[in-house]
């Protein structure tokens, strides 16, 4: 009887040790997989430019805190890695677009028409940039257009045509190939243009035209 019990106990403790070992392996596996997942998520978030402080005004994306120390942690991490220095509110407002108003990603094979209202600013510039933030042309005035040089109609309105092919009127040259983003900068905005109280219908439209 004692012998049997002893045998059973030994058996139980043997199974226990094996159980502990499996438990430990599972814990290590969980830690390794967890750490890898966490780092992968971080890399992905920075690579895909995930941020939480953004407001959308039609196709235009604006992050009112992007320049500041109290920006969301994702914006701060992205800023530290990219080294970009966004405009602060004392200087103006910065908007960017990666897709046209219908939601389709910007494509250099297409024409885009930028028209409609523009928030009050002393000067604005619209430029096409590569997704990593460099100019698409060597000449500054060929990669952007400013409010001082556009031709307006009799009512003060304007159409800007962004296209890789030369267009009459207000033409913003696009790169012949490759992805691009549009950046709109409003310099010296008046108080009424504070981004927090702006709505999408105060911003210009970004309509996709003909595609080659």
């Amino acid at each position: 009887m004692r012998c049997v019990r002893g045998f059973t106990n030994r058996g139980a403790s043997g199974r226990g040790a094996k159980h502990h070992l499996i438990g430990l392996l599972k814990a290590i596996l969980a830690a390794v997989i967890g750490a890898c997942l966490g780092l992968a998520a971080t890399w992905l978030a920075l690579e895909r430019n995930v941020t939480f402080g953004e407001t959308r005004l039609g196709p235009w994306i604006h992050n009112p805190r992007a320049a500041y120390a109290d920006a969301d942690p994702y914006t701060r991490a992205h800023r530290a890695r990219m080294g970009d220095v966004p405009l602060s509110q004392g200087e103006g407002l910065l908007f960017f677009a990666t897709a046209s108003a219908d939601g389709s990603p910007l494509d250099p094979r297409c024409d885009y028409v930028i028209s409609g209202p523009m928030p009050p600013a002393r000067l604005w510039t619209l430029s096409a940039m590569t997704p990593d933030g460099q100019p698409t042309h060597a000449t500054a005035t060929r990669t952007s257009i400013s409010s001082a040089e556009i031709v307006r109609d009799h009512a003060g309105g304007f159409d800007i045509i962004a296209s890789a092919r030369a267009r009459p009127g207000n033409w913003l040259p696009l790169p012949a190939s490759g992805a691009f983003v549009l950046m709109l900068r409003l310099y010296d905005t008046s108080g009424s243009a504070a981004a927090g109280v702006m709505t999408g219908d105060q911003m210009p439209g970004l309509r996709r035209g003909r595609c080659a």
């Binding site: 830690a31 997942l37 780092l39 978030a45 994702y74």
Partner: peptide, 16 residues
Amino acid sequence: ALTIAAIVHIIAILVV
């Protein structure tokens, strides 16, 4: 694993 992933992710974003 998911909990560890979330913690690692948060720390990594703050440390970058």
